[in-house]
Amino acid sequence: MSEDKSTSTHFGYKTVEQEKKADLVADVFHSVAAKYDIMNDVMSFGVHRLWKRLTIETAGARPGMKVLDLAGGTGDLTAKFSQLVGDKGEVVLADINDSMLKVGRAKLRDRGIVSNVKYVQANAEALPFPDNHFDIITIAFGLRNVTDKDAALRSMRRVLKPGGKLLVLEFSKPQHEIMRKVYDTYSFKIIPKMGQLITQDADSYEYLAESIRVHPDQETLKQMMIDAGLEQVEYTNMTDGVVALHKGYKF
């Protein structure tokens, strides 16, 4: 009998009921929140900072703009956007996971970033913001954890202003066979061991590696963004497509 796609979804390589995925993902990020930044640096050898820098540059944030850093976690993008939009602008750091939000809020407040940042616990599939509200939305390494990605993309488009820009930074599919083999070995053999060593949680990092493999590839995600009503959609591969930055506009 074929799987009932209306009630099931991926959780890594496992198939689970849709309504259970959010709780399962939440458990992963509750577990890793405290060491999330350290693991990002270790797993990517610091290269995640370059990926995020390109995202910031592509966003083109200017003074006075409203920015939504969705699935913003510990606030790396929010910190930079806060500087760029200034006192007359606004940055909303939104995440479905309260543990990640708490870590992000504490980190940013320790850095003195308080005046133009708001914190909102929110589900990307049903964003609690008005229509036509944000100039820029970014979602970095978060879309693959969303249960209904199509609903999330439509929700993001809804809250963008006309002329607004959505940027999706996400792990994707390496373009060359040698890179794919190296990346698979690293993801499934090395990263869980790092997770065990640093966070005492290998299982969560096994899930994160699996979630990357079942995430839509570059062209599939591009079409999903178009189907959600975004226009001029294009993407840039980084590190041979290990990561891709997708960009689309609302007109």
Rank of each mutant, 00 (worst) to 15 (best):
S6C: 00
S6M: 06
S6Y: 05
S8P: 05
G12K: 10
T15S: 10
E19A: 04
K21I: 08
V25M: 10
D27V: 02
A34C: 08
M39L: 15
M43E: 08
H48N: 04
K52P: 04
K52T: 04
R53T: 06
T58L: 10
A61W: 09
M65K: 03
V67C: 08
V67K: 10
G72E: 05
G73F: 03
T74A: 12
D76F: 02
L77E: 00
T78R: 04
F81K: 00
G86V: 10
D87L: 15
G89M: 00
A94C: 15
D95A: 12
D95W: 09
M100K: 09
L108G: 01
D110H: 15
S115N: 02
V117W: 08
V117S: 05
Y119T: 11
A124K: 01
E125T: 05
L127A: 06
H133P: 00
T138I: 13
V146E: 04
D148M: 13
D148Q: 15
M156L: 14
L160D: 01
G163Q: 03
G164R: 03
G164F: 03
G164C: 06
L167G: 14
V168K: 05
P174K: 09
P174Y: 12
R180A: 07
K181H: 15
K181S: 15
D184K: 14
Y186Q: 00
Q196S: 12
Q200R: 15
Q200Y: 08
I212A: 14
D227A: 10
L230E: 11
A244Q: 05
L245V: 02
K247V: 14
G248I: 02
